[in-house]
């Protein structure tokens, strides 16, 4: 038997909205420690890793580990029926192939019950090494979204260069080119408005912008985003979900032929 309750449905609504264009089907691995999901997009170029710790839920019970394969678009259809302030409860037992979503209004005057059919999804699971990164950049998530969208109007790829003083995003295309340079900024009103650059060694990598733009759909989940880079390694774009976990996006680099 599995049961998990969130005080506000908004979080899960936003999480699914931010990943369902990249991956349409995914398996939620449930265990005593929480719910995890790991899935690659259809081109196997990017990967989403979601981790929701059990202690971040209002209530979390999983008698034994089990998997719930879901179509994220179908899940999103049901979550759209939840009010963002509704209490959200998920329930499933290994026996039947359904997961129940309960949406309870704040005044408890309305209780909605949706049952989603579960699916058998065979997916390659990838072992993601917990590596050290040559460069780690934290910045306001809205700023990162603006950068990738602005450069996306100039070219298809972005060259990211991190030195000890700044991080540079450069794009070029038919109409011309653009470079956006961000310097470290620590003394800000709110900590999440900081731009922090930790560089062990300089990096210079190229990535397809359309994936980074897609990742930035998660901007509403966290006020800041952390970008981790190492030469010739996939970039990690991480949105920390306060008190419960994270959504991490991985994207393989483009390599000069």
């Amino acid at each position: 038997m599995f049961e998990a309750q969130m005080a506000q449905a908004a979080l899960l609504k936003q999480i699914i909205e931010s990943i369902r264009e990249l991956i349409t089907e995914a398996t939620f691995e449930v265990s005593g420690t929480g719910m995890m999901l790991q899935a690659m997009d259809s081109s196997h170029v990017s990967l989403v890793a979601l981790n929701l710790r059990s202690d971040g839920f209002q209530l979390f019970r999983a008698d034994r580990p089990f998997s719930m394969g879901m179509n994220l678009n179908h899940m999103a259809k049901m979550l759209k029926c939840a009010g963002k302030d509704d209490t959200l409860t998920m329930r499933a037992d290994e026996a039947n192939d359904l997961v129940t979503f309960l949406f309870e209004s704040p005044g408890n005057e309305r209780l909605a019950e949706f049952e989603l059919k579960l699916m058998d999804i065979t997916s390659e699971n990838l072992g993601i090494p917990d590596a050290e990164y040559s460069a780690t950049v934290s910045m306001p998530s809205a700023e990162f979204q603006r950068i990738v969208k602005d450069l996306g109007s100039i070219g298809d790829t972005v060259e990211i260069t991190v030195t000890k003083d700044d991080v540079r995003f450069a794009a070029s295309g038919d109409i011309g080119n653009a470079t956006i340079k961000c310097r470290q900024l620590l003394d800000t009103e709110k900590p999440e408005d900081r731009t922090l650059i930790e560089m062990v060694e300089p990096v210079n990598l190229t990535f397809a912008l359309r994936y980074l733009i897609n990742f930035s759909k998660a901007t509403s989940l966290a006020p800041s985003v952390t970008i981790k880079l190492s030469t010739e390694m996939p970039v990690v774009v991480e949105y920390k979900l306060s008190d419960i976990g994270y959504v991490r996006f991985y994207l393989a680099p483009k390599i000069e032929d």
Binding site: H44, V45, L126, P234, A252, E256
Partner: peptide, 14 residues
């Protein structure tokens, strides 16, 4: 021209 890599070479499949 640069070519897009897949994730497999970087992450071990298990």
């Amino acid at each position: 021209e640069s070519s897009q890599q897949a994730l497999f070479p970087y992450f071990a499949q298990f």
